[in-house]
């Protein structure tokens, strides 16, 4: 019974972290229509921002809003200095995608220059709790709470506010949104701020739960892309469902692999087998439509 509780807790923790990492990527895709590979570095920058503050004696939880701000600023800078000029010059999604890989590499190597490639850890108290038979650390508890909070807040934003509805309208049809008088550029900017900022916070929590290296975001980018694809590219609700589904597949898979005496290093392979199967039978993902979004 305790094993089941621990498995459920692990699924919740992994899934919540995937939600936090994937929500920004799927939002940006939904509005900007390209896969932003530099999302990995938005995750990593947030983690290093918190590390700097942590070294100055601040708690990583106090550092979370600063990590949000730093990654949001990087996201907006990339949009203004790289992606927007490419779009204005008629660049297509492939150009944007390749530019995002390049921009991500530049940021990653800059971070490596500043912080070195050493494995770093935060100075955090090792507190853990026994909850319903499962042992979870304080960081893991924050991951789950923040994951659930972000789902609720995004749901409220997208359906309960004019701005959220404008975001959905812009993702449906940017040209018509412009013709309707919706300030499309402001909506796009907000998307970068929210998407980048949440990725930064996710980076802090990921680093706190594991360790901090310049490839922190890059290492998780593939499963995060898997979540976005599985959910239906551009679908927020699909990404949420896919995050927990993939987390369940990974955690159950790890147990199966262990019982068979196979290395648990293959955990991502399980996710990708599921991803390939889903895409074969439902190419638009769980909640995606041919519109590239979902029907809220």
């Amino acid at each position: 019974m305790a094993d089941v509780a621990q498995l459920a807790a692990n699924i919740l923790i992994t899934g919540s972290l995937y939600v936090l990492m994937a929500v920004g990527l799927t939002m940006v895709y939904r509005i900007m229509r390209f896969a932003n590979f530099a999302h990995a570095e938005l995750i990593t920058l947030g983690a290093y921002t918190a590390y700097s503050l942590n070294q100055l004696g601040f708690s990583i939880y106090i550092a979370l809003p600063f990590a949000f701000t730093a990654s949001a600023l990087l996201a907006v800078s990339l949009e203004r200095m790289v992606f927007m000029p490419i779009r204005d010059r008629g660049g297509d999604v492939i150009s944007l995608m390749i530019a995002s890989i390049g921009a991500g590499m530049v940021v990653r190597h800059l971070l490596q220059q500043v912080y070195s490639a050493r494995v770093l850890t935060y100075n955090i108290p090792l507190v853990s709790y026994e909850l319903l038979g499962a042992r979870v650390s304080q960081t893991q508890l924050v991951i789950v709470l923040l994951g659930i909070l972000s789902i609720l807040l995004f749901h409220l934003l997208l359906t309960g506010t004019t701005l959220g509805r404008a975001m959905r309208a812009t993702s449906d049809n940017p040209g018509l949104a412009r013709a309707s008088g919706i300030p499309v550029h402001r909506v796009m900017l907000l998307t970068w701020v929210l998407g980048g900022g949440i990725a930064g916070m996710a980076g802090v929590l990921r680093a706190a739960d594991t360790r901090l290296v310049p490839t922190l975001g890059w290492e998780v980018l593939l499963p995060v892309f898997a979540v976005v694809l599985l959910g239906g590219i551009g679908s927020f609700y699909g990404a949420v469902a896919a995050a927990y589904l993939l987390a369940a597949a990974e955690n159950v898979g790890v147990l199966v692999l262990s019982s068979l005496g196979i290395s648990t290093g293959y955990r991502y392979a399980i996710s990708f087998v599921i991803l390939i199967l889903v895409l074969l039978f439902r190419p638009h993902g769980i909640a995606g439509s041919r519109l590239g979004g979902e029907r809220e």
Binding site: T162, A166, R168, A169, D172, N173, A177, P183, L291, R295
Partner: peptide, 15 residues
Amino acid sequence: FPSLTVRENLEMGAF
């Protein structure tokens, strides 16, 4: 806007 309801479409018309 196909994913928006009729009401939301009308709201966007008077953003």
